[in-house]
């Protein structure tokens, strides 16, 4: 398969603590790859290694078939990067900042203005041309996506893009990423599993410096649907009746829980937005 990213046997330690241990995985082109792990599992470290911001102790990384080397930026021209908390020059306006980015990535001069306009519309900042200093976190995140997508990179790397946002902001960012994935491969790290379920088609689970599991969302579905169902009822009475019925058949229910996103649904309802 054609892979946009190959990581081969990467190890990285910080002060004697092994963060990544012989990590190997590949990301196929035109996929949305969910990179899942606990806080401190090494997700950000892996991303910074891909970007050449850290030097690996061992192993090699290839982006678009080219080897990544530390400190140099040759392979970064294929990559758009959204840091977990993107920071900008507060005294600039979004258009000015994106213009700086466009000139650095050498976007042809006659395309710069139209490209900036297009991308600001995509992330919904086209009407906010004030200094970045006054931006909210969600707006900064959107500008972060704009700067990452500006050069139409082959690979978009997002480091926990939704962790710091409220549910509404999260949904918006996920929608933007989903629409971006039509043109580019997206890798995004998170510890919010519902986000992965919402937009990813491939998942890798990072645990103790190794990739503990990797597969497609279909495989996730196949594994987890062996024994569990999610059933929705119109009312609590119906639910109680159904449970009584199950009990009367002497069927044991090993686990019963309220649906995860109940609160989220309510939140969306209250503020007047439909869930996806």
């Amino acid at each position: 398969m054609d892979n946009i990213l190959s990581i081969k046997g990467i190890s990285k330690s910080f002060g004697g603590k092994k963060v990544l241990d012989d990590l190997t995985f590949e990301v196929p082109r035109n996929s949305v790859y969910g990179f899942v792990g606990k806080n401190g599992a090494g997700k950000t470290t892996t991303m910074k290694l891909i970007l050449g911001l850290y030097q690996p102790d061992k192993g090699e990384i290839y982006v678009n078939g080219k080897k990544v080397s530390f400190g140099q930026n040759e392979t970064n021209k294929y990559i758009g990067y959204l840091p977990d908390v993107p920071e900008f020059y507060g005294y600039m306006k979004p258009t000015e900042y994106l213009k700086l980015c466009a000139e650095i990535t050498d976007i042809p001069k006659n395309e710069v203005d139209s490209r900036i306009k297009e991308i600001l519309t995509l992330v919904g900042l086209d009407k906010d041309n004030k200094r970045i200093k006054g931006f909210s976190r969600g707006m900064k995140q959107r500008l972060g996506i704009a700067q990452a997508l500006l050069s139409k990179p082959a690979l978009l790397i997002c480091d926990e893009p939704t962790s710091a946002l409220d549910p509404m902001g999260r949904k918006e960012i996920l929608d933007i990423l989903k629409s971006a994935s039509k043109e580019t491969t997206v890798i995004f790290s998170t510890h919010i599993l519902t986000d992965v379920e919402r937009i990813c088609d491939n998942v890798g689970i990072l645990h103790e410096g190794k990739l503990a599991w990797q597969g497609t969302m279909e495989q996730v579905g196949a594994i987890s649907s062996n024994k569990s169902f999610q059933v929705e009822f119109d009312s609590n009475e119906d639910m109680k009746k159904a449970i009584e019925a199950i009990k009367s058949q002497n069927i044991n229910i090993s686990n019963l829980e309220m649906k995860d996103s109940n609160l989220e649904n309510l939140f969306m309802e209250v503020i007047g937005h439909e869930t996806a």
Partner: peptide, 14 residues
């Protein structure tokens, strides 16, 4: 503040 990260990861020479 991490403002150089965006710039450097765009392939800007240090």
């Amino acid at each position: 503040r991490g403002t150089l990260i965006n710039i450097v990861t765009k392939g800007m020479s240090r």
